[in-house]
Design a protein around this nucleic acid. Structure first.
Length: 779
DNA sequence: GTAGGGTTAG
């Protein structure tokens, strides 16, 4: 039998090293070959592979049968490389491998995912004419499929003269593991039609997760029916099949069926419990998920696993139940599974979502093994807690440690640029996803659309949107919301109509975006129309968020009484945010009486956050009623609410420069103040008058003007004027709303410095040019 | 067979 040339040279060193003289604790008596062989088989049966090896080395001129016995033992549970080494020495000593050698050595290659060795052995088997053997072929298919080499696997499969269930299953498992839904289904049907075979438990255990992933409830139900007909749910593989079925129903969000399967199972294990708990988590039924977890512990501690704790921790994170979360942390530590990567990452994520970034960071530093998800959990934690700069540091650290960011990492990182309104950072991230080949991923594009919109470049948002190969509902909603914050209500409406034309069904969020867009553009009638359309045509039940938008729309448009009546007629009990929207409009329209009434309502509800106190205080101040304004601020202080300081920032050449009111900490402060004084002189010539109504403190008139002049957004703009060429747009971001005086001043500034100035505040964009603002003073 | 980080709204 001819073996391919060249194998001797590459295999010789390993083979020589392996053939050491015998040593160790086996008997040294003289035995004949048959007796040694018997002892070898005994050692293998006992699982004593080291001793088996010593026996093997005593056997004079071992034949293929002897080699096969040990190779088979190695390929069972490892060490896998020993199986391959032994195969090599077999070739070295010119012992021809046979049809019992190849399946086992190939299995070892498969376990090591060593495609190179596998290909060589494939060639050897072909040379020996054994590559179409049932078992050799099955092992080859498994090897190729594991490394996603579908072509070679299909080739092997096609060349088989007869195929058994194992071969069909190997191919199916490959398609299923790589998420190739259509291939898998076609193969599954082919198996029954052309192959004339009936699916067995392994077939269905491969197929069901794929059906689950694609939420193919109908096919899943047929598989379930087949299991019942074939009594597959009654043999020893019952737990596997049952769990796979349960999980399929859970992933299809059909918890009733999932529970029914669960209760019908005579035997359950930790995977079964985890699958069911995970199903409840998926359907956002958190309390029930947690109760199941508790039931599981009552039924048996043996079910406790890293996976089930991970699900339970997600429940704690979602319910913000930190007390339960820390208890689980202790449970993990006690049960000794705390070192598990998955469980560790869930813990990290729970602390991060709860805003305990110090705890999250400590946990992160303590863990020796970190993967992409660990970094992702920390990174998104920082972004969600408004610490965008820290998020960038995590990203840098990740790259320094050679941990590859994936789609989810980038989807978490890009909003950090939106928070900072840092266009340069955003563009770098965009470049980064292009380099990584992720630029056309739907979720990535969605976050890019949002980022560009919030960084003032709605044109780039639209570019990303137009180039997307596949859009989902989030893509459309994000684009509509983007037009909304830019005050482009008409464009938002056009896009909404385009969305419907392309067959996308709007959801509840779509209407929030759309009505908000109308509100920001003063399109009161249109907004009302879309609210009616939503309820009557699409049957979407309005949520509190929709009512907030509607009150905002009506009240901001000057229909304060209608807004008030609208709140009265709501089927839901209006919360602080609804009244807050009305109060905000009272301030714009300087309606003190209603403002007072509304603020009384808010105080009854117990104000959450500080915004409402500030608004009420502003309303009194604007009316010159400083005593009452001060009183509100005293109540605010007594109740322990802190006003978040106004802060503005501007990005110059990729660096961020932040300012608070009256800030003198910037190195260029003298120049900035000088420029601002000059601007004041110039804009006064055009008729600007400081509107001291917006100064909250009861100061002398001159001091009030100064307090106004050095508002943070004015400082940032002055710095922009100094740092950027005239043709560049000055883009400033403010964490709270721009005050009325600044708004007026900015419009004058565009004239005296001939600039385009965009200010993004907590509410919307102010795109100012030639003395006009895009919001039409409607903000 | 189960599990951990992600995008839109006010």
């Amino acid at each position: 039998m001819g073996l391919p040339r060249g194998h001797l040279r590459s295999f010789s060193t390993a083979a020589v090293r392996l053939h050491r003289p015998p040593s160790g604790s086996i008997s040294h008596e003289v035995k004949d070959k048959k007796e040694w062989q018997l002892e070898l088989e005994q050692q293998i049966a006992r699982g004593q592979l080291a001793l088996a090896r010593q026996v093997f080395d005593r056997i004079p001129a071992p034949d293929a049968r002897v080699y096969n016995a040990l190779i088979r033992a190695y390929s069972w549970r490892g060490p896998f490389h020993a199986a391959i080494d032994l195969y090599r020495s077999m070739l070295y000593f010119r012992v021809p491998p046979n049809k019992y050698t190849f399946p086992f050595v190939l299995k070892a290659c498969s376990a090591l995912a060593d495609l190179r060795a596998g290909r060589t052995i494939h060639a050897h088997a072909a040379a020996a004419g054994l590559h179409t053997d049932l078992f050799v072929s099955a092992a080859l298919i498994d090897l190729y499929i594991r490394r996603a080499r579908f072509g070679p696997a299909a080739n092997v499969f096609a060349k088989m003269p007869t195929r058994d269930v194992v071969a069909w299953n190997a191919m199916l498992a490959g398609y299923a593991n790589h998420g190739m839904y259509h291939h898998a289904i076609a193969h599954f049907l082919d198996m029954q039609d052309r192959g004339g075979l009936r699916p067995n438990a392994s077939t269905l255990v491969s197929l069901l997760p794929l059906l689950a992933q694609h939420e193919a409830l109908f096919q899943g139900t047929s598989v379930h029916a087949y299991c019942l007909r074939a009594y597959l749910d009654q043999n020893e593989e019952q737990v596997l099949i049952g769990t796979a079925l349960l999980d399929m129903y859970a992933k299809c969000k059909h918890l009733v069926y999932a529970c029914r399967v669960f209760h019908g199972m005579p035997i359950r294990n930790e995977v079964t419990w985890s699958a069911l708990i995970g199903g409840f988590v998926l359907c956002d039924r958190m309390t029930e998920a947690f109760n199941l977890f508790k039931d599981m512990l009552v039924e048996g501690l043996c079910f406790l696993s890293a996976t089930s704790v991970a699900s339970a921790l997600r429940v704690c994170a979602s319910l913000a139940d930190l007390r339960m979360g820390t208890q689980l942390h202790a449970l993990l530590a006690k049960s000794g599974i705390h070192a598990d990567l998955t469980a560790g990452n869930s813990l990290l994520s729970m602390y991060a979502k709860a805003g305990l970034m110090n705890e999250a960071m400590m946990l992160f530093d303590e863990t020796a093994i970190k993967d992409t998800i660990s970094y992702g959990a920390l990174l998104s934690g920082y972004v969600q807690n408004g610490k965008a700069e820290e998020a960038f540091l995590v990203f840098k650290k990740m790259q320094a440690c050679n941990v590859q960011p994936d789609i989810a990492t980038m989807v978490s990182l890009i909003p950090a640029c939106s928070h900072l309104a840092a266009l340069q950072h955003g563009r770098c991230s965009h470049g980064s996803v292009i380099i990584r080949g992720l630029a056309l991923e739907t979720s990535i594009c969605n976050s890019l659309i949002d980022m560009y919109a919030k960084c003032g470049r709605i044109d780039l948002s639209r570019q990303v949107f137009d180039k997307m190969p596949a859009r989902d509902i989030v893509s459309w909603n994000t684009m509509i919301a983007g037009y909304g914050i830019h005050g482009l209500g008409k464009e938002a409406t056009t896009l909404f109509l385009g969305m419907k034309n392309q067959g996308f069904a709007p959801d509840d969020v779509t209407f929030i975006c759309l009505i908000a867009a109308c509100s920001h553009s003063g399109l009161v009638t249109e907004g009302k129309h879309w609210f009616d359309t939503m309820t009557h045509k699409y049957g979407i039940l309005p949520r509190m968020e929709h009512y907030i938008c509607m009150v905002d729309l009506l009240a901001r448009g000057g229909f304060l009484d209608e807004a008030y009546q609208f709140i009265q007629s709501m089927p839901l009990k209006a919360d602080v945010r609804v009244w807050g929207a009305l109060l905000g409009a009272c301030r714009i329209h300087k309606n003190i009486d209603l403002g007072k009434q509304v603020s009384r309502m808010i105080q009854k509800l117990g104000p959450e956050g500080t915004g409402n106190f500030v608004l009420l205080s502003n309303i009194f101040s604007a009316a010159g009623r400083f005593d009452e304004a001060a009183e509100v601020r005293i109540i605010q202080k007594v109740k322990g609410f802190k006003k978040s300081p106004g802060c503005s920032w501007i990005e110059i050449n990729g660096s961020l420069h932040a300012f608070v009111g009256g800030d003198q900490s910037h190195p260029c402060s003298p120049d900035i103040y000088h420029e601002l004084d000059n601007i004041l002189v110039d804009i006064k010539k055009l008729g600007y008058q400081a509107d001291t109504n917006f100064v909250l403190q009861d100061l002398e008139e001159e001091e009030k003007q100064k307090a106004l002049l050095y508002h943070s957004e004015k400082l940032a703009i002055a710095f922009g004027v100094l740092s950027l060429n005239e043709d560049k747009t000055i883009f400033v971001t403010k964490n709270i709303r721009v005050c009325g005086d600044c708004h007026t001043a900015i419009k004058y500034m565009t004239l005296v410095r001939n600039r385009t100035i965009i200010v993004r505040d907590a509410n919307r964009f102010h795109h100012c040019k030639n003395g006009q603002c895009s919001c039409g003073d409607f903000w």
